[in-house]
């Protein structure tokens, strides 16, 4: 059990670690995606908050009121896809209270495919039966979020931005925040990495 307790503690530290700079970090990724032709250019002005006194609810506002998030373009393995990013933050305490990023897509055979990363709400992060079956920071992959069996892959404490990078890297060719040569320089002091 101690591994799961430890993981849960690491997950809980993520709420504090985000600070307030995470929203700019999300937008930078969206702008970079747009600049590389993987989503609509209008995304630059669409990741935006609504403020409810102490809370801010963030989302990518729909361009035309009909779709959710932003449409992803030139994603080789999906016919169509949308990226959704939602978050709840408390700027005063510099805490990120909830975070979701997900892609809903259609495969070439017209079946649905979803990948979603959830950082559960702070204070409400003990869902399900325990830290193994329902970790506070997890990832779903499947036809949709409700399909059985409901898979929640535990994520390490890489934080929401790195997780968003992972999600994008899964779909967008060339999106690699940690290329092996750079990793090798860090890890091996310059020795070539195994491929």
């Amino acid at each position: 059990m101690k591994e799961w307790v430890s993981l849960h503690q690491q997950h809980r530290a993520l709420y504090d670690a985000a600070g307030n700079g995470w929203s700019g970090d999300v937008r930078k990724r969206l702008v970079r995606l747009a600049d590389r032709g993987h989503c609509e250019a209008s995304v630059r002005g669409r990741f935006t908050p609504r403020r409810f006194r102490e809370f801010e609810a963030w989302r990518i506002s729909p361009a035309d009121g009909s779709s959710r998030g932003v449409r992803l373009l030139n994603v080789p393995d999906l016919e169509s896809a949308s990226l959704i990013v939602e978050a709840l933050a408390q700027p005063r305490s510099e805490r990120l209270l909830k975070f979701t990023c997900m892609v809903e897509g259609l495969r070439p055979d017209s079946t649905t495919w979803t990948v979603a990363i959830h950082l559960e709400a702070e204070g409400d992060d003990r869902k399900g039966n325990g830290a193994c079956g329902h970790p506070s920071f997890h990832c779903h992959v499947g036809p949709d979020l409700d399909a059985r069996p409901r898979v929640r892959v535990p994520l390490p404490d890489i934080g929401p931005m790195a997780a968003l990078d992972w999600l994008i890297a899964t779909l967008v060719p060339g999106w690699e925040p940690a290329p092996w040569p750079a990793v090798a320089r860090e890890v091996d002091g310059g020795a070539p990495a195994r491929t």
Partner: peptide, 8 residues
């Protein structure tokens, strides 16, 4: 500019 960003 608003129209452009709202896909109008």
């Amino acid at each position: 500019m608003r129209a452009k960003f709202r896909s109008h």
